[in-house]
Design a protein around this nucleic acid. Structure first.
Length: 375
DNA sequence: CTGGGGAAGGGGCCC
DNA sequence: CGGGCCCCTTCCCCA
């Protein structure tokens, strides 16, 4: 993603999604589990396997779920939105509140068998060794051959791969937790040039954005190209739930998933548009946290959350106010800072550190390995 | 009020 | 073309 102008991007996104009722928070769908959970929890391996695979990607059912923009906190109230809460939702079913204690008890029993001791919480293995290997255990000793240090890694590039889904091979260099970015995302996202073999680029005739693959360009034109949106001749498939129009049926199908939410969690009934979103959600049930911080051993279920956490270990935060120079670990914190007024005139933009980068843009991203001393 | 964590969303890219 | 994964971002909640 291009980040040289995130404020503009945010504004664009706000505009882009303003018309669309989809915004965060999945909704509850029909609960298909028996009302009474088994008296004895299944083996964690069976549970995890079922948790991951036991969902529908119901392409047959295009009926949308609740599409309200800001549903209440479902986890607290258990009062999941009914179809009445959305003008287009037709299939959302409210779970009977009396089922929740049973669900929670059932989950607690399963979780007790899944969760490691607190001291071991940050380690994904071997407690999760029996999980269905979607997140296969990976030895932290290989990931972090040296003791924790606040010094920048000597060879940051060595640490490109950091994914429990793809553990490093024995002959590969150890991945660096500090650089959690995948290799393929470095150049285009950060604007930092990296030495990579020249490959043919596929350029969008409407907005001049280029992509390394034709499929990338194709998807861009199908879904994202704002410049092409004015060309109605290109659009022939319209979404029946919102005003979106697409140039191909495949693009429309992909979009409709965000309305129909075909991937359903059979433990709590929440529905998601993509399987991997459900996958992440299921971790909230199992307590699986495959991403751990090497500084404090705190573990996270989401890689991005670990990345944000790493900023808290950094002396110099990633986002800085151009007015007062104060740094923040998250852009949202900086935004709050700016919204509240930092007291310095003209402090309306922020910049990424470090200073070595050109500062012609008001919003720049820190290169993955610079100035961050965490890990 | 601020900072941080949890959860979830969409876009980009590779296979 | 579609699935899967990664990334960044956002929203909400809490200490």
């Amino acid at each position: 993603m291009l980040v040289e102008d995130s404020q503009a991007t945010r504004a664009l996104m706000t505009k882009k999604y303003a018309h669309c009722p989809l915004k965060k928070r999945p909704v509850l769908v029909r609960e298909e589990r028996p009302a009474t959970p088994p008296t004895t929890p299944p083996h964690p391996a069976h549970l995890a396997t079922r948790l991951y695979y036991d969902y529908h990607c119901d392409t047959e059912n295009d009926e949308p779920q609740n599409l309200s923009t800001k549903p209440e906190d479902l986890s607290k109230t258990g009062n999941y939105p009914s179809k009445a809460s959305s003008p287009v939702a037709t299939a959302a079913v409210k779970m009977e509140p009396r089922e929740w204690p049973q669900q929670l008890e059932y989950l607690a029993a399963c979780r007790a068998r899944l969760e490691p001791a607190p001291a071991e919480l940050a380690r994904p293995s071997p407690q999760y060794a029996y999980l269905p290997t979607l997140y296969a255990p990976y030895p932290l000793e290989e990931l972090y051959p040296a003791a924790p240090s606040l010094s920048p890694p000597a060879h940051p590039q060595m640490y490109a791969h950091y994914s429990p889904a793809s553990p490093p091979s024995s002959c590969s260099p150890p991945p660096c937790p500090e650089d959690l970015r995948s290799p393929g995302s470095v150049s285009s996202d950060s604007g930092i040039s990296v030495s990579a073999p020249r490959r043919p680029r596929y350029q969008c005739p409407d907005c001049a954005k280029s992509y390394s693959t034709y499929s990338g360009l194709s998807k861009h034109q199908q879904y994202h190209c704002a410049a092409a949106e004015g060309s109605l001749a290109r659009k022939s498939f319209s979404c029946k739930y919102c005003a979106k129009v697409y140039t191909s049926l495949g693009a429309l199908k992909m979009h409709i998933r965000t309305h129909t939410l075909p991937c359903k969690c059979h433990l709590c009934g929440k529905a998601f548009s993509r399987p991997w979103l459900l996958q992440g959600h299921i971790r909230t049930h199992t307590g699986e946290k495959p991403f751990s911080c090497h500084h404090c051993r705190r573990a996270f279920a989401d890689r991005s959350n670990l990345r944000a956490h790493l900023q808290t270990h950094s002396d110099v935060k990633k986002y800085s106010c151009s007015g007062c120079g104060k740094t923040f670990s998250r852009m949202s914190l900086l935004s709050k800072h700016l919204e509240g007024g930092c007291g310095v005139p003209g402090a309306s933009a922020y910049e990424y550190r470090p200073e070595a980068l050109p500062t012609t843009h008001t919003h720049q991203q820190l290169p993955p390995t610079a100035t961050v001393h965490a890990y």
